[in-house]
Amino acid sequence: MRWLALTLLLPALAAGAEPPSSSTPLSPGWAPLIAPTSVLLPGLGHLLRGERKAGGIMLGAAGIATTVSAGAAAFLIFSGASDVSAAVGIPLLLTGVSTLLLLAIIDWVGTFAGDGAPHTVDSWSARFRIAASVLAPMRAGSPASPELIASHRGERWLIQARARTTVNGPGTSVEGGAGVRVFGYSAHEPRAGLWLEAGLRYEWFDATRLLRARAQLVSTLPMGVFAPRLARLTTLFRLGVDPTWVWYSGRSGADVELPLSGGFEARVVITEPLRLFAGYEHSRDGALGGLATGFLGNFYGGAELSLFPSFVVFARATAGTPNGFTLGLEWRQ
């Protein structure tokens, strides 16, 4: 377990390396150059900033992630993504590519953030959260889906509940889950750590019934625990399975599916009331599916705006099948 935690922490350890005294923030004018190159060479921005140790570790981590991703991709191509090879190759590919993209985001944020950035707490890690949202698929004839979410987090545990329906369309679901922190990253950040989360979702549409179980390892990492300069950045990485039982009308017995689930997300506090987030969702059993067949789920990005101390308005755009927009209001305490 510690090995897995350390693997997930590697990017953060790199970014958290002690900056040399000569380190200076780069001008935003470098952004057009750094942004694309960081995808291929995460750590380049830190090197340009004069932080050789951090940049070097990030480049090393990116090298490992690239090797894992390329190896997994080559194995999949060679084997024709057969049943045997996909079971190994796809989780490796997902882990490798997720690490690369998270490294790139860490590099961007770490490159352009000032050393004296005030420590900001992302209210996303609040103990109580209740949200209401509406998802609008960008496809003619696809109905909107309102959703309610509530969660409560303790020091080492959390519980959450979710309900979603579709207006004038098929598909209603209720979901409950719980999590326990199995490895803490910081005594000051209760949400930071490696969590084991599990849940059950019951869904019905027309005459079809569905029960989805979920078990995931979730790494939640407020980057400020490693470097004050990264205090505005939080990363999440999730990996698990979603055993699912589907009962169709008039048939005895259930179809059993065992899809891989997971994804990653990066959240950046831009100003105290404004936060941006972007991520990838691998499982494709929501109202919005993946971008294509095969092992490609959907990508999303969005913003949160705190209107009052405890209320947040959020908007999210998702590139999936179909594409969609979500608008919601959340209470956090």
Partner: peptide, 17 residues
């Protein structure tokens, strides 16, 4: 058959429908 590979429709909900 193989959920990990997911060489199937992009939406599981649509596939089940």
């Amino acid at each position: 058959v193989l959920g990990v590979r997911a060489g199937q429709w992009s939406s599981r909900a649509e596939a089940r429908r």
